[in-house]
């Protein structure tokens, strides 16, 4: 008779689990992407159409003259399109990860498999969903006359801190969505509010009283601004502040993964499913 069956934790175990369940991850990614479009005649063409609708709406807004974003070095629709893409990159991974338990509760209470598989699936689906609009956005940025520099190739890597931050907050909130829905809703709305306090639809140089003060202390200003600047102008926006924020996010990520591995076994029984 062997020792008591226990649940093992740790990074090596995570890597082993992800490798052992690689085929499940592939299947879940496939389901996640295809399920949504199975009933649609134009199918995954929607992945291309949505960003195009978004561009058209920002162009219309800009032409109407109701927006006063501050001075931008590139045409405003190009600026705001890229900024919102970066913000959506962060917020979508947060929503995806934060719903892993409630979204697949039935599967979780019926089948034993490593739960990190669900996180890996969300990250892959997120990257696929981001890649297609990104390619369209780059074409549109070229159309608006943006000259990319070689440093723009670093753009995908500059998104890593935002990805880790979205995953980390998502992992914590995934538990709250099960046992403390009020807290989860507060964070959802709080992040919506944070977007207003981050230079997304306006520039960091905007003159707007208290808002100008707040955006100086908002780490998202640097996380979003750094990625945007490197793609649009090839420059580095507040590199030291960006690096400091990135290091803190990395530590936060390590902590949340550890917490996730310890706490996930206890959350399963709180999922109401029969």
């Amino acid at each position: 008779m062997g020792p008591p069956r226990t649940i093992r934790h740790g990074w090596i175990q995570i890597i082993k689990n992800l490798n052992d369940y690689a085929f499940l991850i592939r299947q879940l990614v496939r389901i996640d992407i295809l399920d949504e479009y199975k009933r649609s005649f134009i199918g995954i063409a929607w992945l291309f159409l949505v960003p195009i609708f978004s561009v058209v709406s920002w162009i219309l807004f800009d032409n109407s003259g109701v927006l006063n974003p501050g001075d931008t070095e590139v045409p405003y629709p190009a600026f705001v399109l890229l900024s919102t893409s970066i913000w959506v990159f962060f917020i979508d991974i947060y929503y995806g990860v934060s719903k892993i338990f409630v979204g697949r509760s039935r599967m979780i209470v019926m089948t034993k498999f490593p739960r990190e598989v669900l996180v890996a699936e969300k990250i892959i689906v997120h990257l696929i969903r981001f890649l297609i609009p990104l390619i369209i956005n780059i074409v549109i940025l070229l159309f608006f006359g943006v000259n990319f520099k070689w440093s723009a190739l670093l753009f995908p890597f500059t998104l890593l801190p935002l990805l880790l931050l979205g995953i980390s907050i998502g992992l914590i909130i995934s538990f709250f969505r099960v046992v403390a829905t009020d807290l989860a809703k507060i964070v959802d709305h709080g992040l919506g509010f944070l977007m207003i306090l981050t230079p997304i639809v306006y520039t960091p140089q905007i003159e707007a009283g208290i808002l100008s003060e707040i955006i100086q202390y908002n780490p998202m200003t640097y996380l979003v601004g750094f990625s945007r600047e490197i793609l649009l102008n090839g420059g580095f926006f507040e590199p030291w502040l960006w690096l400091g924020c990135s290091c803190l996010i990395f530590c936060f990520f390590l902590f949340t993964v550890r917490f996730f591995l310890i706490a996930e076994v206890k959350i399963v029984e709180r999922l109401i499913s029969n």
């Binding site: 069956r5 649940i7 599967m107 019926m110 089948t111 029969n274």
Partner: peptide, 28 residues
């Protein structure tokens, strides 16, 4: 099946014991 964690006590079994459970057939 290792889906729930026991509050106390232990389940002993050989290493890599493959436990497959079907509760509701249509799940998944």
């Amino acid at each position: 099946a290792n889906i729930y964690q026991a509050s106390s006590g232990a389940i002993y079994g050989k290493k890599n014991l493959k436990v497959i459970a079907i509760f509701t057939l249509s799940t998944g």
